[in-house]
Design a protein around this nucleic acid. Structure first.
Length: 512
RNA sequence: CGGGGAGUGGCGCAGCCCGGUAGCGCAUCUGCUUUGGGAGCAGAGGGUCGCAGGUUCGAAUCCUGUCUCCCCGACCA
């Protein structure tokens, strides 16, 4: 092999946005649907989402949260009750106004004026209000609390600008909604969900994240406090990958979620909500993808190992397949990362080389090629996706004893899971800086060619009208506040914006 | 929603300015030869040119409207 011939035509370095789209197409994850901002999620993309669902759902249930399902449609009057919430979502709402179509006389269909709804229904952009409505009926006594619910659902937000997986008009997510008898308990649940997301991102997806509190201007509409996990993409931008909100009592007030406490007095419940969406798939692509396509961490790979027989369309194929199936059966009895190995024996007709590159682009962690020579020698040729092209080209395949491979596979996958995390974490560490002054911050982001990492600054945390000018100064640099890391060092010295004594350290970055 | 770009077989594109009944590469199918780092040759199939109107003898091409995608802003999981 002379020159490296990458599986994609666009590199991350060349055009990151175009590269992102090429990965989605090349890994066969999703495609446009013809409806504005809506995508068809194809089996490989959906398979990854299903793995995310399974692992996160396990964590959710382990915390004592129960799944339920609430309607897609929310009566307008129900939605309208929490003022700040409405203000935040009103401009991106899909509305159902009719329940029947009639012919327009020209071969088309139009809404039937006679079938206009008494009250419009909105398509949920999030379910605080309708779940709050149910909670108001389900919560009567302090004994009914905490009420811990979650739903897996689709939601619709009519965003101006869409990008596959990152911001689609319709997206899939889970939304946790809980009600508690005290602020402390609700806050504790908010933080529990945040920590759950951190562990999910880092342990299951190998995506390093920084968990912290959002500043006031980045809060969820109607929330008292919003926390997020932020991940650094390979172009240096930040992606908010999950959020957890403490909603105080305002949503309970709007939905009338009240309970009688131990003393017999009526109290408003304290509620929380928290969510993670299909945006995580985008985070996965931009964290682990390379110039050969996607790389999927073993914990969420629909297939962790693909066995690829080098079929020759001759009499030897039967024996080769038998050899491969033996390997598959051996692997299937083993466990890695707490679950049985997911192994595919790719028997499809077609050229083996073509199939190999298909799996490379999809990012299967381990591709095991088995040819006649391997079978005769009791061997296999192992390609580890995350190390492709890393060394001299010939060594991408490791020829090893079949039995030895089978017995080491589980540990191998566990190691890959960790290595992907380490690679991403090292990249992030190398691009995290601090700025002692606003001038430093400006200087850091002045060079557009430079990799735009994240910068931690100290600030005095002004609010309301005092926060707006700071936001504007950041916006001029295309920057936003990300969050105040939970583990940030204490502030000391002046605020870089106001010069007043700083109260905390906050991350600033370009973002999606 | 503003500013720019683009929609032509599955994918990537040419043709459009200067209207005359659609072409190239890849992919697919067939045959032969190949076969362990993306095979070669030969042949074949596949498109009402995003959609709707209009102009014209005739529209992928000109005009109007509209939908969708991409980039830059404003909005956001």
């Amino acid at each position: 092999m002379s020159a490296i011939r990458h599986a994609l035509t666009i590199t991350r370095e060349g055009d990151f946005a175009a590269w992102y789209q090429e990965v989605i197409a090349a890994a066969d994850m999703a495609e446009e649907s013809g409806v504005r901002g809506c995508m068809v999620i194809k089996p490989w993309g959906y398979g990854i989402w299903e793995r995310m669902q399974r692992l996160l759902d396990t964590r959710i249930k382990a915390a004592g949260v129960q799944n339920a399902y609430f309607p897609l449609f929310i009566p307008l009057s129900n939605f309208v009750r929490e003022a700040a919430h409405v203000e935040g979502f009103a401009k991106e709402m899909a509305v159902v106004t009719h329940h029947r179509l009639i012919s327009d006389g020209k071969g088309g269909l139009i809404p039937d004026p006679a079938a206009k709804l008494e009250e419009p229904l909105i398509v949920r952009p999030t379910s605080e209000t309708i779940i709050g409505d149910a909670m108001s009926r389900w919560v009567q006594s302090w004994r009914d609390l905490p009420l811990l619910l979650n739903q897996w659902a689709n939601v619709v937000r009519w965003e101006m600008r869409t990008r596959m997986f990152l911001r689609t008009t319709e997206f899939l997510w889970q939304e946790g909604h809980t009600a508690h008898d005290s602020r402390e308990d609700a806050l504790s649940e908010t933080m529990r969900a945040l920590e759950m997301y951190r562990a999910f991102a880092e342990e299951d997806l190998s995506i390093p994240v920084i968990a912290g509190e959002k500043p006031e201007n980045e809060r969820f509409p109607g929330a008292v406090g919003t926390w997020s996990i932020e991940a650094m993409m390979q172009d240096g931008k930040a992606l908010q990958a999950g959020t957890s909100h403490y909603l105080g009592t305002s949503f309970a007030d709007a939905a009338n979620i009240r309970f009688q406490d131990r003393e017999g007095t009526q109290q408003l419940a304290h509620t929380t909500s928290w969510g993670v969406s299909t945006r995580m798939v985008g985070a996965l692509i931009m964290t682990h993808g390379d110039d050969d396509g996607l790389r999927v961490p073993p914990a969420i790979a629909p297939f962790q190992i693909v066995i690829l027989p080098m079929l020759r369309d001759n009499d030897g194929d039967a024996a080769l397949l038998e050899y491969c199936d033996g390997l598959r059966a051996t692997l299937a009895t083993q466990q890695a990362l707490g679950e049985p190995l997911r192994v595919l024996l790719d028997k499809r007709p077609g050229k083996a080389a073509q199939k190999r590159w298909d799996w490379v682009r999809k990012g299967v962690p381990i591709v095991v090629e088995v040819g006649a020579r391997d079978a005769e020698g009791g061997q296999v040729s192992v390609l580890r996706r995350h190390r492709l092209w890393r060394e001299d080209a010939k060594s991408d395949f490791e020829v090893m004893d079949k039995t030895r491979f089978a017995s080491a596979a589980a540990a191998d996958l566990t190691a890959i899971q960790r290595e992907l995390f380490e690679q991403a974490r090292e990249r992030r560490s190398a691009n995290l800086a601090t700025a002692a002054s606003f001038a430093d911050l400006e200087a850091f982001f002045a060079d557009d060619k430079r990799f735009p990492g994240w910068v931690e600054v100290q600030w005095s945390k002004p609010s309301g009208a005092d926060l707006a000018p700071i936001e504007a100064r950041l916006k001029a640099l295309k920057l936003t506040f990300r969050n105040v890391p939970l583990d940030a060092a204490p502030a000391a010295g002046p605020c870089i914006f106001t010069g007043a004594p700083a109260v905390e350290r906050i991350l600033v970055a370009r973002s999606y």
